[in-house]
C-alpha cells in the first residue's frame, strides 16, 4: 500500500471539467513529479489532495485512510500532508521565524518547542540568518524557501510542492535541487509540480503527465520524455535533447 493513492479523481467547476479520472500513487520515500501545460489541472489536483476542494468523484487515500471528503485543509495538514503555493504567500507582518513557527504549532502547543522546531527547519533551508527579518522583505528565492520551511515545520509525511522553482534563476534552481533531495532523505515523500524540466529530470523518480485534466502518460523521466504524445502536447522537440 502506497503512502498516497489517488484513484479516479474528478472535479468539475460548474460545467467545466478541470480534472478527469486521474489516478496515481506516491510511495513512502518517493519523489513524484507532475508536469503538463498550463490549465492541465495540476494545481487543482493539489487543491483536491490538500482538502481545499472536495472532488466531484474519485478517492484520495493517505496512509490507508480515506481523506477524500474531509474538505478542511487544516485537518489534512494535521494528518501529514503539507503544501506550498505557486504564488508564495508569506505572512508579511510576521518575522521569518514567526512564519515557520505557525507551521511548527501544528505539532506542539508550546512556544519554546515550536521555536526550536522552527529554528531547526530554518537552518535546514539556510534561512536562519534571516530569522528576525519581516517575511515581507525577503527576496523571491528566500520566500520560496520560507514557503517550504513553513510547510516542513508541520512535520508532513508528504509534501506537495507547487512550482517551487518558478521565478528562480539557474543558480538558485541548482541550490534548491539538493535541498529537495535532503527533504526526501529525512523521510518526507514529495509530489511536485514543475515546469523547469531540468529540475524535474534531476529529482523525479516517476512523472505523471497531465493534459486537459487527464493523465496523458506516466512513467520514469526517460519514458515520459520519449513519449510522442507528451512531446506533442507539452515538451516540444528541444527539451528531449536538453
Amino acid at each position: 500500500m502506497s503512502l498516497l493513492e489517488v484513484r479516479g479523481l474528478t472535479h468539475r467547476f460548474g460545467g467545466l471539467v478541470a480534472v478527469s479520472d486521474v489516478s496515481f500513487d506516491v510511495g513512502e520515500d518517493e519523489i513524484v513529479g507532475i508536469i503538463g501545460p498550463n490549465g492541465a489541472g495540476k494545481t487543482t489536483v493539489f487543491n483536491l489532495i490538500s482538502g481545499i476542494f472536495r472532488p466531484s468523484a474519485g478517492t484520495v487515500i493517505f496512509r490507508g485512510q480515506d481523506i477524500t471528503k474531509i474538505g478542511r485543509p487544516e485537518r489534512v495538514c494535521r494528518l501529514g500532508i503539507g503544501r506550498t503555493f505557486q504564488v508564495v504567500r508569506p505572512f508579511g507582518d510576521m518575522t521569518v521565524l514567526e512564519n515557520v513557527m505557525v507551521g511548527a504549532f501544528a505539532r506542539t502547543s508550546h512556544l519554546a518547542e515550536a521555536e526550536a522546531i522552527a529554528r531547526e527547519v530554518l537552518g535546514f533551508l539556510y534561512l536562519d540568518h534571516k530569522a528576525t527579518v519581516p517575511a515581507g522583505s525577503l527576496t523571491i528565492a528566500e520566500r520560496k524557501r520560507l514557503e517550504v520551511a513553513r510547510a516542513l515545520a508541520t512535520r508532513p509525511k508528504l509534501l506537495l510542492l507547487d512550482e517551487v522553482m518558478a521565478g528562480l534563476n539557474p543558480t538558485e534552481v541548482a541550490e534548491v535541487v539538493p535541498l529537495i533531495r535532503q527533504i526526501r532523505s529525512s523521510g518526507v515523500a514529495i509530489l511536485m509540480i514543475e515546469h523547469v524540466m531540468a529540475a524535474m529530470m534531476a529529482l523525479a523518480e516517476r512523472i505523471v503527465v497531465l493534459n486537459q485534466g487527464e493523465v496523458l502518460a506516466m512513467g520514469t523521466p526517460e519514458e515520459v520524455t520519449r513519449d510522442q504524445r507528451v512531446i506533442e502536447a507539452y515538451l516540444g522537440e528541444e527539451v528531449v535533447h536538453a
Binding site: 490538500s50 481545499i52 478542511r72 485543509p73 487544516e74 489534512v76 495538514c77 494535521r78 503539507g82 503544501r83 503555493f85 504567500r89 508569506p90 505572512f91 508579511g92 507582518d93 510576521m94 514567526e98 512564519n99 513557527m101 505557525v102 507551521g103 504549532f105 501544528a106 502547543s109 512556544l111 515550536a114 513553513r150 510547510a151 515545520a153 508541520t154
Partner: peptide
C-alpha cells in the same frame, strides 16, 4: 505569546495559507 496568538496573526495575514498549515 501563545499558539492562539500566532494563529490569529497568521489568519489576519492570509487565511488560506494559514489553513494549509493546520490552523482551524
Amino acid at each position: 505569546r501563545s499558539r492562539v496568538g500566532y494563529y490569529l496573526r497568521a489568519m489576519r495575514a492570509d487565511e488560506d495559507a494559514a489553513a494549509v498549515l493546520g490552523v482551524s
